[in-house]
Amino acid sequence: MSDMLSKFDVLLADLDGTLYQGPDAVPGAVDAVLGAGERGVRTVYVTNNASRSPDDVAHHLSELGFPARTPDVRTSSQAGAAMLAEQLPSGAAVLVVGTEALADEVRAVGLSVVDSADGAAAVVQGHSPDTGWRLLAEATAAIRGGALWVATNVDPTLPTERGPMPGNGSMVGVVRIATGAEPQVAGKPAARLLQEARDNASSTSPLVIGDRLDTDIEGGNAIGAPTLFVLTGVSTARDLLQARENQRATYIATDLAGLTRDPDDLVPGPRAGWRTEWDGETLVLSGDGGGAEPELDALRVLCAVAWERAGADASTVTVRGDGDAAGSAVSALGLA
């Protein structure tokens, strides 16, 4: 029997919520990545977080047990700097709204870093917990004066141990409101970061893995790559069921243990033991399951039917379980 690892030559894996949660590795994630490496399938670690350097990210991953080297890490700061270098002459002044790690990437592509709008040819904006009004005001002045604007990512929130906190997208929103401008975006779900990760790995058959539909899965779809959605992070089963067409995953798994499963077991579609029918706009699940993971099988069944019926937008789909087993599955998935 073939498994997921037999189909792909590289894993383009998200970090927070997929490989680790806060200071701890997601259970089973280290073993899954090590096992993939033993099979000859490399993992490239792809993150929207522009606040840390690739060296720091690789060091953190290594401390958790992942086989990570600096060349295995691709950050949105690298992608953002590359976008600037393609559009600016060597030595051009860039106002950096972000950490020193982002500034270092800008310098690495031959551009200079400034801290005011005066003479700035571009603004690059990435997450930093220390960004304040004065720097946002300088960015606003530069952009209103005609400077190129690149955002490393537009994630509205950043996962923390205290729950979601304002992410780079929230700070980008401040500048967007003040200027009326729209930035070019380097990170997921824009294609640039994942394209760089794929091309640098010389991959012809990548698998994009992540826990967020609006970044990881949408980003994978943007580059035409198969995607694996895992339920270990931000997006929920309900989010997946009601996802727009560009945020729907090719494969659905509880976690990275799915990499050793038969791909046919993970795709949305019919499953023995579960039946569905429509009652108006409500999708009714019945049956008693029967597979090794009946709840996930129920989700795969429900997604396939909901997406087919709803077309590009499934946001109004609701679910009801008919019978004890179906009711328990719907409740466990958070769909009741």
Rank of each mutant, 00 (worst) to 15 (best):
S235K: 01
P268F: 02
G219L: 03
R238P: 00
V234Q: 03
N246D: 15
T254V: 12
W278M: 13
T254Y: 03
D239G: 06
A225L: 12
P226W: 11
V234G: 01
D211W: 01
V234K: 00
G224M: 11
E277Q: 14
L231H: 08
G219V: 01
N246C: 06
R271I: 09
D239N: 13
V284Y: 12
N221F: 04
A253H: 05
V230E: 10
T232R: 05
D279V: 06
R212N: 02
R244Y: 07
D265H: 13
D264F: 02
T215A: 09
T250P: 07
T276D: 11
A237S: 15
L213E: 04
L241G: 05
A272N: 12
G290M: 12
R212K: 10
I217M: 06
L241S: 08
L283G: 08
S286E: 14
T282R: 15
T227I: 08
I217A: 02
G290Q: 12
A292G: 14
L213K: 06
S286D: 13
L231D: 02
F229K: 10
D255I: 10
T227M: 05
G258C: 12
E281D: 15
A225Y: 07
I252Y: 01
T260I: 10
V234S: 03
W278R: 13
G280C: 14
D214S: 13
L256Y: 08
R212D: 02
D265T: 15
A272S: 13
I217S: 02
P268M: 04
A225H: 09
A225V: 08
E218W: 00
R238K: 13
T215L: 06
G269S: 09
S235M: 04
G291D: 14
V284T: 11
G291K: 11
T232G: 10
E281W: 01
L256C: 09
L266Y: 09
T215F: 07
G290A: 07
G273D: 03
T282C: 14
V267H: 02
G290E: 09
T250R: 13
T250N: 08
G220C: 09
E281S: 12
D211L: 08
A257S: 15
E245I: 10
R275P: 00
D216A: 04
T260V: 13
G287T: 14
Q242P: 00
A237G: 10
T215H: 05
G219K: 00
G290V: 06
G224L: 09
T282W: 10
D211K: 06
G290Y: 11
T232N: 07
Y251Q: 01
R271W: 09
D255C: 07
D216I: 05
A257P: 00
G233H: 01
I217R: 03
L259W: 07
